[in-house]
Simulated assay, not measured.
Amino acid sequence: MDGSTTPVPVTLEQMLAAREERVRSQQAALAAHGLPLLSLTLVAPGPVKDSAALREVFCVALERLEALCREHGWRIAACRAWRQVTGCEALLAIDADAVQLKRAAVALEDTHALGRLWDLDVLGPDGRSLSRTALGLAPRRCLVCDEAAHACARSRAHPLEQLQAAMARLLENHRHAAVC
């Protein structure tokens, strides 16, 4: 993809194709490394999945994930990041216990100023995704109202403009905190 900053809306078909490609990449990484995988995507309601602001959120997430691995003494065996019209993505093969990795990822999502905009999925070496609920952890919270995100998304409880405004506030709060 070029360095264009003009927001481009994506179609459902493009998003589904990106998801299929992500699964293929995950399967290849599992076969190559035999380690738990951390898949990073962004929460980006609406038709635009790639923008300068979203790339900024993505870079902060990658930096924080690398720091997390250093803090825990986990080796990143492989890291592949890419950007396309459907958004930024990264796949990390990490030499760590998958459950500990998922717990740490959830803690990042729940505590970092931008964490609600990160979707950190962990797959065990067997390829199975570890869910928050399977680990007895609370579901992701909505960007707007703090209810379970999946319930609000399914019922379309909030207009797109309200979700995008909440995203913008999170990014602005993060930028402000970084300067102060």
Rank of each mutant, 00 (worst) to 15 (best):
Arg154His: 14
His158Trp: 10
Glu89Pro: 02
Asp146Val: 00
Gly115Ser: 11
Leu12Ile: 13
Ala138Leu: 10
Leu135His: 01
His72Leu: 04
Thr6Phe: 03
Ala17Thr: 08
Leu143Met: 02
His112Asp: 04
Pro36Thr: 08
Leu171Gln: 13
Asp97Ala: 12
Leu16Trp: 07
Ala166Glu: 00
Phe58Trp: 02
Glu56His: 12
Val8Glu: 14
Ser129Lys: 11
Pro45Tyr: 08
Gly87Pro: 05
Pro7Gly: 05
Gly127Met: 08
Leu42Met: 05
Gly73Tyr: 05
Arg64Cys: 10
Met1Lys: 06
His174Tyr: 13
Arg64His: 12
Thr86Asp: 02
Gln100Gly: 13
Cys79Gln: 08
Val23Tyr: 08
Cys145Arg: 07
Cys88Ala: 13
Ala29Ser: 12
Gly46Tyr: 09
Asp95Val: 11
Gly34Leu: 00
Ala166Tyr: 01
Cys59His: 11
Leu37Trp: 03
Gly34His: 14
Gly124Gln: 10
Thr133Ile: 13
Glu147Gly: 09
Ala78Phe: 05
Arg19Phe: 03
Val57Asn: 00
Ile76Gly: 04
Pro36Lys: 07
Val144Gly: 06
Ala93Tyr: 03
Ala77Val: 15
Arg64Lys: 14
Thr86Trp: 00
Ala52Cys: 05
Pro47Asn: 06
Leu40Gly: 02
Val57Phe: 02
Asp126Phe: 02
Arg75Asn: 04
Leu170Arg: 07
Thr111Gly: 13
Gln100Lys: 05
Ile76Asn: 04
Ala67Leu: 15
Gly3Ile: 00
Gln100Pro: 03
Leu171Pro: 04
Arg75Ile: 14
His176Val: 13
Arg70Gln: 10
